[in-house]
Amino acid sequence: MLTGSIYGWENGQDDIFNPQSSRNRDDCLEPMRLMSAVARQNGIELHTADVNAQKHLTPDFSLYVESIDFVPCGAKKNYLILYETPLTIPRNADSWYLNQFDRIFTWNKDLLHNGLQDYHGGMVMRDRFVQIQYPNPIPKECSGDFQGPTYTQRQDFVCLIGSNRHANLVDERELYSQRVKAIQWFEKNAPLDFKLYGNGWKVPQKRLGSLGKLRYRMEKAIPFLLGKPVFKSYQGPAKTKYEVLSKTRFCICFENARNIDGYITEKIFDCFFAGCIPVYWGDVGIANYIPAECFIDFRQFASYSDLYRYLKSMTPERFAQYQQAAREFLLSNQFTPFSSQNFADTIIGQIKDDFALA
């Protein structure tokens, strides 16, 4: 039996496999449970690092599910799942950090094709990178054919679900600030047609750097003194994303960054599962992965006014066409790379190969 230690899940005690975990919002831990199940089927036992340490076990391999500090543990091989872009986690483009791992699972097409050469001249060879996509658990509320409420059955018009955060590098590709611009436009021009959900929106836009933090503190003081909300459309955290999206016609669906090939997160899939039409901005080649008929491409509009007019003019029939295209995609083999099962199979399959397991 091969043993692996998982690093990067602070709760420990195998909480990452627990469907009742307080952190299992929208069943986000399903990929980890499937990975554990596939591992057992192949003679591999996975635990969080603290569990193996309590048993005084030296793992055969380590698997980092977040880009945290590397902890030498005597493992024969070390693996990293690279979820985020360097704009959010700068060390994800640091050759010194990445070279501590034998294999790095990533969606990043540039790394997969070319490897990495960082700003210091350090290199990571491309054969260390293994392709995965963000895994997307299907909500339990979904029917087998992904039929959802129709246009007329949805009471809300446009929403945005996300947390109030900022990029950790200065880069024109970041979209955190563009989400705020979208929120501000709708609050000013179409306040009755827009609702904001997520964490951290009781305070102003989070900003990068010392000057950004100073501006944030100044902006935070004014609404506090006046007793006014910062974002008037804020509804609080979503109980579940499916609950919000299934009652809403359109969702502002911006990735954390744009124009990074392969960076497609759960956001657009959350919309598809609930039959909500995403207004998407992110991967420059999104239509290479997901048919263009499934979503509204934000880049096709010169302004939010143009976008809003398009949304308001949409007929129930046209809305149903978007929904049908998304359902067909979800039921096709095109969705397979984005599934939780494919995520688990790919990672465990690579570990099997590396340890020459039958």
Rank of each mutant, 00 (worst) to 15 (best):
G349C: 11
L87V: 06
I104R: 03
K239G: 05
A358G: 08
A274M: 07
C28Q: 11
D283Y: 02
N92T: 14
K239T: 15
E293K: 15
I290L: 06
H47R: 06
I264L: 08
I222S: 07
L307R: 04
Y304A: 02
M35R: 03
L111C: 04
N333V: 11
S143G: 15
P337E: 13
A93C: 13
G162S: 13
R91H: 06
H113C: 13
P19V: 08
S36A: 14
C294N: 01
G148W: 02
K267P: 03
R165E: 13
Q323D: 08
P72H: 10
P139E: 04
I104C: 08
A167E: 05
Y304V: 03
P237C: 13
D171K: 09
A182H: 00
F101T: 08
P59F: 09
P191D: 10
W96H: 12
K181V: 12
K77V: 07
H56Y: 07
L111S: 05
A287S: 15
K232Q: 12
A292D: 11
F329I: 10
P316G: 12
P19K: 04
G8E: 06
G209W: 11
F146P: 00
I268A: 02
G262T: 06
R165F: 04
I138A: 05
D69S: 15
H166E: 10
F272N: 02
D127F: 08
P337N: 12
I296G: 01
A257G: 09
P191C: 09
F101Y: 12
R154D: 01
D110N: 15
P139Q: 10
I264Y: 00
F250R: 01
D127V: 09
V170R: 11
I44A: 00
A37S: 13
S62N: 12
V170N: 12
R309W: 10
P337Q: 13
E255V: 11
L214E: 02
K220T: 06
R207E: 08
W185A: 09
K76Q: 09
F17N: 00
R103F: 14
R40C: 07
S36M: 06
F157S: 04
N333A: 14
S163V: 03
L98F: 04
D94K: 01
L2C: 10
D118A: 08
R154H: 05
T240E: 06
G8N: 10
Q13P: 02
N24R: 09
Y83S: 13
F186R: 03
Q41H: 11
F269W: 08
V170P: 00
G236V: 02
P31A: 01
Q334R: 15
L2G: 05
F17S: 00
A75N: 04
F224E: 10
N256L: 03
S143C: 13
F224S: 09
P19S: 05
D297V: 00
L208N: 10
S62R: 00
C294H: 03
V284G: 06
K181P: 06
D102N: 14
F298A: 07
L225C: 10
Y83C: 11
Q41K: 14
Q117V: 14
